[in-house]
Simulated scan of single mutants.
Amino acid sequence: MLLYNASIVTPKGLIRNGYVHLSGGKIMTIGKGSLDYLSVKDAIDAQGKWLLPGLIDLHTDAIDAEISPRRSADFPIDVAFRELERRMSGCGITTVYHSLHLGYTAAELNAQSKYSRREIFDRVYALTRQRTLINNKIHLRFELTGIDAFETACDLIEKGCIDLLSVMDHTPGQGQVSVDSFIRMAVRQGMSEAEARQDLAEKQAAPILPTNQLDILLDLARSRSVVVASHDDDTAQKVDDMYAAGIRICEFPVSMEAAQRGKELGMYVIGGSSNVLRGGSLSGNLGVEEAIRAGVIDSLCSDYYPPSLLHAVFRLAANGMALTEAVKLATLHPAQAVGIDSMTGSIETGKQADLILVDVSESTPIVTHTFVNGHLVAQANLQPQPEPAWQA
């Protein structure tokens, strides 16, 4: 297959009026100018559209929301997985790490799902082994207060079901949720302030996974080549502690101090693209665009809104960042963070042909073609709309 007349975004810069030749699922040649495209069996005229590497999403909670979009409203896991794949391919995401929580009691109570967490993990993993539209992997989000889930986490890692592990602690008063914001949220949900403070005290008194068991979990992950990330670090000291434990990804730092420390230590520092697209944090924490411009965040993930990944890239470019650098935030840098950059994450010869063509309509990027391993898996061409009959 040949893609020609494209504006190609490579790690080294832009190639206008460029072409990419694909064969056997790989990028074979990249060039500029005219080519005898008529001699190629499958040729697509990009018509000047942007040709980008497929997006890599290391953290999205979308699969749980797809399975249980409302409390107690469960849909078949197979249906949720397949429909989410279709939507993600349309968003330009060619590699996704489905982020599934384990040991996070508050989230389980909120969902009221008929499925156990183990059922969801096992079925999603089985689906990733079947024929798929995009590259699907599993990100295990382990809650440190989920002591009873420790053995399940170890078993999932030992059986090769997990590709990325993050360790989380959503105890209020640290990390993402401050005491004041916890009280405000609880009162909005119908508690009195006294009840909210009692709930806060109970949550803060909950035990967390003992250090020796955390060490076992992290050692097991490393022995299975599972990359490990921290989550919601709020202080430099917490980042130091995570780094000392052998963790090399700092995910969703909630303060500039934490993000800066992660960068100083040479960690990959990941922020949410939803934060960029919305113009700030839902919780009043670190603004990701500000942190990117300060040079302390180098990667993006969609968090809870997959379409935001592509839109954040183009928003950053519209706000003055070089498009080549903005694209790396959602492609090459995440690939490097989890060690798959030799296979995907950039438009270079020999890499997987995970590519997207992007049209820009009135400043909004729209994916028109998505290729995974050289196969066209999604296509959506914009069509001009006829005038209403009363205007004709």
Rank of each mutant, 00 (worst) to 15 (best):
A149P: 02
L102N: 00
A149H: 03
I147G: 01
C154F: 01
D122A: 11
E158Q: 03
K114P: 13
F150K: 06
C161V: 05
G160K: 12
T128M: 06
Y104A: 10
L144R: 10
L102Y: 02
E108R: 10
R129G: 09
G160I: 15
D122W: 01
S113G: 09
E143A: 10
L102T: 09
K137T: 15
I147E: 03
L102F: 01
E108Q: 12
F121V: 14
R129D: 10
Q130S: 07
I162G: 00
R129V: 09
Y125R: 14
R123N: 08
R117T: 10
S113M: 13
T152Y: 02
R129P: 08
E158F: 00
I138K: 05
C154T: 02
N136V: 11
D163W: 02
T128Q: 10
I134L: 08
K159E: 13
E143S: 07
L127R: 15
T128L: 02
F150M: 13
T132L: 10
Y125W: 15
N110L: 07
R117A: 01
L109S: 14
T132V: 14
T128F: 13
F142R: 12
N135H: 11
Y115M: 04
T105I: 10
C154Y: 00
S116A: 04
A107M: 13
N135D: 12
I162H: 01
F142W: 09
R131T: 06
D148H: 08
I162C: 01
I157R: 01
A153K: 12
F121T: 14
Q130M: 10
I120H: 05
N136G: 11
L165M: 03
G146V: 08
A107K: 14
D155L: 10
I147C: 04
H139V: 08
R118K: 14
L133E: 07
G146K: 03
D122T: 07
A153R: 08
E143P: 01
A106Q: 15
R141W: 06
I162Y: 00
E143C: 13
S113I: 11
A126S: 15
I157P: 00
N136A: 08
E108C: 07
L144K: 11
Y115H: 05
F142I: 13
E119I: 14
T145W: 03
A106F: 09
R117P: 01
L102Q: 08
R131K: 11
L144E: 12
L133Q: 09
D122I: 06
A111V: 04
D122K: 10
G160T: 13
L140I: 09
I147R: 07
L127Q: 14
D163M: 03
C161Y: 12
D155N: 07
I134G: 03
I134E: 01
I120G: 02
T128P: 01
G103L: 04
Y125M: 11
E119N: 04
S113F: 04
N136D: 07
D122G: 07
S113N: 08
F142A: 08
K137D: 00
E151L: 09
L164H: 11
C161N: 07
F150T: 09
Y115I: 03
Y125T: 14
I157Y: 00
C154Q: 03
R141T: 12
Q130T: 11
E143L: 12
A153V: 13
L156P: 00
A149W: 00
H139W: 04
F142V: 12
G146D: 01
G160M: 13
G146C: 05
D148Y: 06
V124P: 00
L164C: 11
E108M: 15
N110P: 00
N110G: 05
L165F: 02
R118H: 09
A107E: 14
Y104M: 05
